[in-house]
Design a protein around this nucleic acid. Structure first.
Lengths: 204, 204
DNA sequence: ACGAATTTTGAACAATGTTCATTTTATGGG
DNA sequence: CCCATAAAATGAACATTGTTCAAAATTCGT
């Protein structure tokens, strides 16, 4: 079965090539400039070929969204070294924020844009990336609780609250809602606001 | 000058008619179904007429975004009755969340979608709606501080942090990031998480 | 070498935002 | 009432998008 194997590998390679081209365009030019035509042109294949390997544009965006979670997960690996769960929680926030502000379009795709979720609805699959990421956060919060923090709080709502806080800052910053609002020091507002959150965390 | 006045009034009326049609479509069908053609058809005018009254689609979306802020501001009027700033802050959060979840597309347009901000950049104007809304929140937080709360915190970063927290919950919910993540009680997660936030507020 | 299966192609379609020459309507003076 | 001028409204036309699919090109097995 040597031929079938090679063919399967070639299919996989071309799929990855398409994704690689799509990602390059996505990161460089943003989501609306990442057209099927531009992807096909970037890798010297025809439009139709893209549709052989991906059902539609949502499928491509979902695949990119998945790559984004792999990247973010990679950034999180440094946190394994932080033993104290509270310190790890804080560090997670910092890594998360840095990832979001360094990769604004990718972050939008992962946490705001509806296309990846529409793909999941269409193929009737679960959001496994989100589930996994949330589990990492929840486990850390749980360990904080086991260490005596967050007395009187419920695990899941609290976890979601913390996620929302950090996501909200990134979302507003990326969506350009901070520039027009803050009079003094609009630049560092995310870092400063996160600092306020850390102060509160120290009391819980 | 009776004629000129009447003409000006007619222009204003037609502008409002276009906006009314756009809003109806926007609320009913969402942003991507709100096309220039569908707007024109809904009010029995031609495509070209829409472009006489609005520079482009971003201008229409910005006008709708402004209407959204007027609506949200209207919802906030009930808060004038709440004398205690801390109670008012909590009530603001509830009103904000209800507005967001009741008007998801409008909320997206106001706080996530880039089109209104791109319009502002194009015409070189400020985001006055955002400024005003943020001022309302900041004033309330300041009054909380004057009443002895939030010791050791900075006003603007803290205000932005609170905004981010509430916005983040709404953004994740509207962006369908909650459904796929939470095992138990995905429905009420926003309310529950906000409840956790209120518990924390009571200690500050 | 050749028929069959697989892969790739790109023309074609529908829908979108946008432009602008043309048509229609309104205005006001003779 | 007429008609020249201005203002307003029109919709055909263009560029670009996602998407489809019959045809062409390539590869495979015998």
């Amino acid at each position: 079965m040597g031929v079938a194997e090679r063919k399967a590998k070639e299919k996989e390679e071309l799929r990855n090539l398409i994704l690689q081209g799509a990602r390059k365009l996505f990161v460089q030019k943003g989501i609306e400039q990442t057209t099927i035509r531009s992807i096909a042109e970037a890798i010297d294949y025809s439009i139709g070929t893209v549709y052989v390997y991906f059902k539609d544009k949502n499928a491509i965006l979902h695949a990119l969204h998945t790559q984004g979670f792999a990247d973010l997960g990679g950034q999180f690996t440094v946190l394994f070294n932080v033993a104290d769960p509270m310190e790890r929680l804080k560090a997670m926030g910092r890594v998360y924020i840095r990832f979001a502000l360094d990769n604004p379009d990718m972050y939008d795709l992962m946490f705001s844009i509806k296309a990846p979720m529409e793909y999941l609805n269409a193929v009737n699959e679960e959001w496994s990336e989100g589930k996994t990421a949330f589990n990492v956060l929840r486990t850390t919060v749980q360990q904080c609780m086991e260490a005596g923090h967050f007395k009187g709080h419920q695990l899941e709502p609290l976890t979601f609250m913390i996620w929302s806080l950090v996501h909200g800052m990134c979302s507003l910053e990326i969506g350009q809602r901070t520039k027009g609002v803050n009079l003094q020091d609009a630049d560092g507002i995310v870092e400063q606001a996160f600092g306020e959150f850390l102060k509160i965390l120290d009391t819980l």
